[in-house]
């Protein structure tokens, strides 16, 4: 007699998932574990890598600076890097929200065929290499590019945007915009605009309608978008490297520097651990916020 299978579609033996779990444990779990282990070791005497002696020095170096005059002080350098990374990501997130709500709502209120085209237009950049998109943006905001040309025509001779923190933030906004538009659109699409019309008919002002009726229903999309933008922006490397003038102003650039020129793997690993902790904290915060509003937010 054959086994009768009932219940959820597609169910099979849970053992099927074992190879994948084992694979990811090996290629994600172990590297993360090694990162933590390396952060507690000493750097190699010469060359790259580590020596197998326990040392908390990497963590001490994050906050305590042995000054060149022999005194020790609180080291503000890496706190500043963290703060800048956080700041740039926050500005980026706000900018993407402000730009995405209008376009998501606008797309959601078009007729179906226009809507499909617009959704495709917003999705398309996702399929294009981030490196190429960042490069393209760099050519736009270059002093010799269109932005420089316009500034020149308007008489702003000393206008520079490329190789500044602002350029980094514009780059992050540019790259992550689709990640904000799409989830907001997904929420907006489900919104019944008759609700807004009803509220309007009952005498509510347009801004009130937006605030009280429209926004709460797209809020899950906004929260999902914040997660999809803020978290990757915090660990971004290319935008600050290519648009910020290589002045190492975000945490990922400092990690990379320690695995190359500065040759301090334990310190790079300690920074990695810090970034992981910060990321987990953010995920938790976003989870709490969405819980508070009772919204269904799916992160993955």
């Amino acid at each position: 007699m054959s086994k009768i299978v009932r219940g959820r579609p597609g169910q099979t033996s849970p053992w099927l998932a074992i190879p994948t779990i084992a694979y990811l444990f090996l290629t994600i779990g172990i590297p993360l574990f090694i990162t933590v282990v390396y952060s507690f070791l000493q750097r190699a005497k010469i060359g790259m890598g580590v020596t197998w002696h326990f040392s908390p020095k990497a963590y001490k170096d994050l906050f305590i600076l042995e000054n060149l005059d022999g005194t020790t002080t609180f080291d503000t350098r890496y706190v500043k890097v963290l703060w800048h990374s956080f700041q740039y990501s926050a500005v980026t997130t706000v900018a993407t929200v402000v730009l995405s709500i209008p376009i998501a709502m606008w797309i959601a209120t078009r007729n179906e065929s226009t809507r499909n085209i617009l959704v495709a237009a917003v999705t398309l950049p996702f399929w294009i290499s981030i490196l190429i998109r960042t490069y393209g943006l760099r050519q736009i905001i270059d002093d010799n590019g269109p932005i420089g040309w316009i500034a020149h025509k308007l008489g702003y001779e000393n206008f520079h945007i490329i190789y500044t923190p602002i350029a980094t933030m514009i780059g992050l906004t540019y790259v992550f915009l689709p990640f904000m538009i799409l989830p907001i659109y997904a929420s907006a699409e489900r919104f019944d605009f008759r609700l807004a019309e009803a509220a309007y008919d009952l005498g509510a002002k347009r801004w009130t309608v937006f605030r009280r009726i429209v926004f709460p229903s797209i809020r899950p999309g906004v929260i999902a978008g914040i997660a999809l933008v803020f978290i990757p922006a915090l660990g971004s490397f290319l935008q600050s490297d290519m648009l910020g003038g290589g002045k190492t102003n975000m945490i990922a650039n400092v990690i990379a520097l320690n695995f190359t020129q500065a040759r301090n793997w334990p310190f790079g690993c300690a920074l990695s651990v810090l970034l992981i902790l910060l990321t987990l904290l953010l995920v938790q915060a976003i989870r709490l916020i969405s819980k508070k509003f009772g919204d269904q937010v799916s992160l993955v």
Binding site: Y78, K247, T248, N249, V254, L257
Partner: peptide
């Protein structure tokens, strides 16, 4: 690295 950190 101190110099790099002072850039902005």
């Amino acid at each position: 690295t101190t110099w790099l950190g002072e850039q902005n």
